[in-house]
Design a protein around this nucleic acid. Sequence first.
DNA 1: CACGAATTCACCCGAAAGTATGAATGAAAA
DNA 2: TTTTCATTCATACTTTCGGGTGAATTCGTG
Lengths: 154, 154
Amino acid sequence: MTFFARHKLIILYALGLGLALFLMKFLEYRLLVIDHAMEIYIGAIALIFTSLGIWLALKLSKPKVERIEVIKEIRVPAENFVFNEKEAERLGLSKREIEVLEFLAQGLSNQEIADKMFVSLNTIKTHTSNLFSKLDVKRRTAAVDEGRKLGLVR
Amino acid sequence: MTFFARHKLIILYALGLGLALFLMKFLEYRLLVIDHAMEIYIGAIALIFTSLGIWLALKLSKPKVERIEVIKEIRVPAENFVFNEKEAERLGLSKREIEVLEFLAQGLSNQEIADKMFVSLNTIKTHTSNLFSKLDVKRRTAAVDEGRKLGLVR
DNA sequence: CACGAATTCACCCGAAAGTATGAATGAAAA
DNA sequence: TTTTCATTCATACTTTCGGGTGAATTCGTG
């Protein structure tokens, strides 16, 4: 992006201002000839600069961004399950979290998962907790449901 | 809505304009005393009316809205799910228990299910409890897993 | 009507799950 | 080398779940 393109509005504004001042100087000269035209002069200035201000505000005001989430259902055959690696990556799921999710889907308790993975109960709690925030859910059952929708578990 | 309230902005603008004109008349008088102050005079006018224009535009213009559609893909099994009525009958599941099982599969809490079914939390506890013994499981997650295996829930 | 099944709800109590916070370690990336 | 991140574990606390028990009500069927 060039300097001109980046500062286009500012430059245009400066040019407009210069032009307006030139116009006013001209009008000022006319004042010497046509007396008692001060009101017209003031009116012209008011009009020009009000317009300029309006134009400037409309050009520079940032649009309000509205985010709309559209949920699109993709139908996949249920028999041949394929792990949705893109989703896992997008959500930033770690290996252990994915493992935990699989056990959750099997209906195991935290203690049972801890025993199967040879770690402590607290570790599983940490994993589930992180998993829940990444999947944006509050319960293990909801995590399984969401995980299934996203193709993360069978 | 009163006339004043309806045209508040216009009236305020008119008052502001009047005030500005008065100010300028005052400045015009000062011009007779302080010579060569025309540039300051013009600058003041430009500043005032540009500001006025900006303020007016921001007040009156409807906010620009920019829509960003985020498409979230959700995978759902393609095969048409058929409820395994034989299994339900064999296990002696009641209507309410099956309803509860569906909500369990969606990851809802007992309280949320209670709200959806317009009954108390205790009632849902009874249903889940009976459901668990009929499915021979000890946890809601296991109930969902078993229910899916038996074709009772999607 | 009487009977049983289903549904509803309540109370108590312990177990499990979940939250919040902090921290140590080791491996990979910058 | 410093930083980042995954993994591990801990303590303390709150919430939810599940088991056990009892009971009132509704509703269809014999």
